[in-house]
């Protein structure tokens, strides 16, 4: 018998939990997605230093427009979210972080030795924290640039996309694993 407190959950229980959440999101609102909110947060920061980045417009479908082509895309839909941060997608992501924190606290938090890097990184690249931080910074750049080019990430394209039998979800998953698996096999030859 395994306890619900075990982390990670056994794959059957974990898969069921994850599946229920993804289904509940579609049933009640719309499919889960995360990476758009990096753009919205950037937009909020940018708009705070330069108020001309997002402006109300009666001609735009969303009611807002931006001189930035990406924020202005699809009738200014991102511009509108930047202007109203209390929207579904942005609040969802804030709540997501709160939910993860709650779970982590209930299991006693992340061990100190794990906070700078996972064991498998240490085994292959040593203890230097700045090497790890620099690598994750660059990786974060690639992941979000890639996710925005693709129009979604692991949540929006892979999980939400494949559960809806979206062609784009399969294309995205193929790309992510075709690059991710060989690279991880090459980089992390020691298991840790």
């Amino acid at each position: 018998m395994t306890s619900w407190q075990q982390v990670p959950l056994p794959w059957k229980a974990g898969g069921l939990l994850l599946g229920l959440v993804f289904f509940a999101a579609v049933l009640l609102v719309k499919p889960i997605g995360v990476s758009t909110q990096f753009v919205i947060f950037d937009g909020i920061l940018w708009d705070a230093v330069d108020a001309s980045v997002v402006v109300p417009s009666e001609e735009a479908k969303s009611g807002f427009t931006s001189p930035n082509a990406y924020l202005d895309k699809s009738g200014g839909k991102y511009a509108k979210s930047v202007a109203n941060p209390l929207n579904y997608g942005f609040v969802f992501v804030i709540a997501m972080m709160a939910g993860a924190l709650m779970s982590a606290l209930l299991r006693g938090g992340v061990p100190k030795s794990e906070r700078a890097m996972p064991q498998v990184w240490r085994a292959n690249f040593g203890d230097s924290v700045w090497r790890r931080y620099a690598a994750t910074f660059i990786a974060g750049f690639l992941v979000l640039f890639g996710a925005r080019l693709a129009g979604g990430c692991t949540s929006g394209h892979m999980m939400s996309g494949m559960m809806q039998t979206s062609l784009s979800g399969y294309m995205f998953a193929a790309g992510a694993f075709l690059a991710g698996i060989p690279l991880a096999v090459y980089l992390f030859s020691k298991e840790g």
Partner: peptide, 28 residues
């Protein structure tokens, strides 16, 4: 809500895969 399929989806997936492998993180 089905997302659009275009060549950039695959290319973006590849880029994300590189960072995903190095960091062990995706956006969420």
């Amino acid at each position: 809500s089905v997302k659009t399929a275009y060549y950039g989806v695959f290319l973006g997936g590849l880029l994300l895969g590189v960072g995903f492998a190095v960091a062990g993180y995706c956006p969420g």
